[in-house]
Design a protein around this nucleic acid. Structure first.
Length: 260
DNA sequence: TTGATTGTTACCGG
DNA sequence: TCCGGTAACAATCA
């Protein structure tokens, strides 16, 4: 199950075994063979995450750009390398480990200007220490688009996904249909702070956990979220409404999250 | 076989 | 310029 396989988890997990090491970079299916060849035998100097985009930096101005999308997955193993499972797009081999990347939405090699352009078009990432929240606030404050949709726009704010948007807005008692112009500075600050809080937990736990329980279930997904995929509000026991926003399903409690 | 899915971009028309 | 809508793509499972 790809449950909770956020990009941030991936960045953290790959870091110790890859950074600082010379990597064998191979494209088993040949699809990215040219890009892989440019990075082969290079030293991996850093892995940067910008929202859900990952940039593997090397001791060259080229970077490996990975976005897992909905289905992408990392599979890590110790050497000796196991046989690739499924459609492995790229295999990274360090002195001790192998990382296979299956099903990424994006898998490409960027030169320095291309990588810079990528970073420039991505909004502030709530998990980054250098994130500039003001950029997100400026966009939201002047947009009449629904906040539930703005939170999915990675050029506005990066890192929040479909589950977190419903959970954050429920926790902050803000209806997803509220226009950005009606959120207000105080509302935005609460959304930003809660996103930072919840995503940090996600990195720590390797799972999406949005309930405040002391010991949320390790195995049962439904016990770790408040309203996503549910029919009853855990606070008021009222019905949870479900609708589409930004082409994805979003959940809200009509009583706890009054429409503005 | 079909549908759904924790994501994103490109493109078009108003 | 902004915004909504649609299509495309990825892999896996029930």
């Amino acid at each position: 199950m790809p449950e909770g396989h956020t990009i941030h988890r991936a960045a953290r997990d790959q870091r110790p075994m890859l950074v600082g090491q010379e990597l064998a970079v191979a494209s088993p299916q040949g699809r990215f063979a040219a890009g892989a060849a440019m990075l082969d035998r290079r030293r991996c100097t850093a892995i940067d995450a910008y929202g859900k985009h990952l940039l593997y930096r090397f001791d060259t101005d080229r970077a490996l750009h990975i976005h897992l999308g909905l289905f992408g997955q990392f599979r890590t193993a110790r050497l000796p390398a196991p046989k690739p499972r499924g459609a492995v797009r790229v295999r990274l081999t360090s002195g001790s480990h192998v990382v296979d990347i299956n099903g990424p939405n994006t898998c490409e090699v960027l030169d320095a200007p291309e990588a810079a352009a990528l970073v420039a078009r991505i909004g502030p990432d709530v998990l980054r220490a250098d994130a500039n929240a003001e950029r997100a606030w400026t966009r939201i404050a002047r947009s009449r688009v629904a906040i539930g949709q703005l939170l999915m726009d990675q050029s506005v704010i990066a890192g929040i996904g479909n589950i977190y948007r419903s959970e954050i807005l429920w926790r902050q008692r803000i209806h997803p249909a509220t226009p950005g112009t009606a959120i207000g500075r105080e509302g935005f600050d609460r959304i930003w702070a809660d996103a930072v809080h919840l995503l940090a937990i996600g990195v720590e736990r390797n799972a999406i956990v949005t309930v405040d329980a002391a010991r949320p279930s390790r195995s049962r997904y439904r016990e770790r979220v408040n309203i996503f995929g549910k029919t009853k509000c855990p606070v008021c026991a009222g019905p949870i409404e479900r609708f589409e926003l930004a082409a994805r399903r979003v959940f809200a409690c009509a009583a706890c999250q009054p429409k503005v």
